[in-house]
């Protein structure tokens, strides 16, 4: 089966700035694929090359098996593009904008009318359709832009940071709509630097950092790959540092504990990375009991996409650790770096 989007060894530089370096990933038909990465990672450049707005320096970019370089027009017919910054002509009404868009995709006038009405209704825009887009709120603008991107029933809808700057309610409307779109068989490619957005929506994702793909897979695959679960332990509500140190030394020697960090800013709580298993918590409690320390609270969780992101973008992990955990275990850090 032909991939909906196939990008192989894409390279793109602007002057001396390398925006994208050897990026490769494939999006399969009918899935929501997320491109996750911090601002400036190269997500938008990748999208621009895909949508025929920028010419790749090297590499292969295909939509439904069609090369963007060889047949850009056929690619444009199959793609819907919703840019990060919604660009509407504020003097046109929503309906007029959609009519313009329909003509640019060469829909017949009766087909256009029908599609426009359907999409206005689906996106809850009917009562705003005949108002000038200059009066729209951010959420309305985004919904109108979504409708515009879908008028010609594209095979792949590409959304660049679809919910940046939106209020929570609008964000959920967009998420819900994208899920419906997937159910109907449309392939969706979204970029985001919101972890929870990709976690909530994407079947698979690629993490991009500084122009390079550094991880690819389904959210749960990536989390599993990180290995251990996370355990947050408080000896007391506010533990003295000495006690926390003592606990760490003991716990570090347990066979299933990979790493222990004391978090000064959280009342000297202990953050542990442990091998997945059911008995870790009770064993930790027992160990503490043996040296006469109580347990105020203890909780175990799977790594979040947040942890994946931090682990994958080492730089951010460091920053986050510096900010969050006052004391760092250099030995354990070294151990982690070598993994």
């Amino acid at each position: 089966m032909t991939s909906a989007v196939s990008i192989e060894n894409l390279n793109k530089s602007y002057g001396t700035t390398v925006a994208v370096k050897d990026i490769s990933f494939k999006v399969e038909p009918g899935e929501i694929f997320g491109l996750l990465g911090p601002n400036g990672a190269g997500k938008t450049t990748t999208i621009r090359c895909l949508c025929t707005l920028a010419k790749p320096d090297a590499g292969k970019v295909e939509v439904c098996g069609i090369s963007v370089l060889e047949n850009p027009r056929a690619v444009r017919q199959r793609l819907g593009y919703v840019a990060q910054e919604v660009a509407l002509d504020k003097i046109l009404t929503g309906r007029e904008l959609l009519e313009l868009q329909a003509a640019l995709y060469h829909l017949g006038s009766s087909a256009a009318k029908e599609r426009i009405n359907q999409l206005l209704q689906l996106l809850g825009l009917e009562e705003y359709a005949d108002r000038k887009t200059g009066t729209y709120s951010g959420g309305l603008r985004k919904r109108l832009d979504l409708a515009a991107g879908l008028l010609h029933q594209p095979d792949v809808l590409v959304l660049d940071e679809p919910t940046v700057g939106l209020d929570i309610e609008s964000r959920f409307i967009v998420w819900d709509f994208l899920r419906k779109l997937r159910e109907a068989g449309t392939t969706v490619l979204i970029t985001s630097h919101y972890l929870e957005e990709i976690d909530a929506l994407a079947n698979r994702l690629a993490i991009i950092d500084r122009g390079v793909v550094i991880a690819e897979g389904s959210p749960s695959q990536l989390k599993d790959r990180l290995g251990g679960d996370r355990v947050t332990l408080r000896i007391r509500e506010f533990s003295p540092e000495q006690e926390a140190q003592k606990a760490r030394e003991i716990l570090q020697n347990l066979p299933f504990v990979e790493n222990v960090i004391i978090n000064n800013s959280q009342g000297n709580s202990l953050n542990l990375v442990v091998t997945r298993g059911n008995s870790s918590l009770s064993k930790i409690e027992q160990t503490l009991e043996q040296i006469g320390l109580p347990t105020f609270s203890i909780a175990q969780s799977r790594p979040s996409l947040d942890d994946v992101y931090l682990a994958a973008t080492g730089r951010t992990l460091m920053d986050a650790e510096l900010a969050a955990a006052g004391t760092r275990d250099l030995k354990a850090e070294k151990k982690q770096q070598m993994k």
Binding site: C64, R78, R115, Q118, L119, Q121, L122, L150, H152, Q153, P154, D155, V156, K180, L181, E183, A184, G185, T186, T187
Partner: peptide
């Protein structure tokens, strides 16, 4: 909007 025409509206042309 019934599920069937929802699907027809949001499905790719292909």
């Amino acid at each position: 909007i019934t599920p069937s025409n929802l699907k027809a509206t949001l499905s790719p042309k292909t």
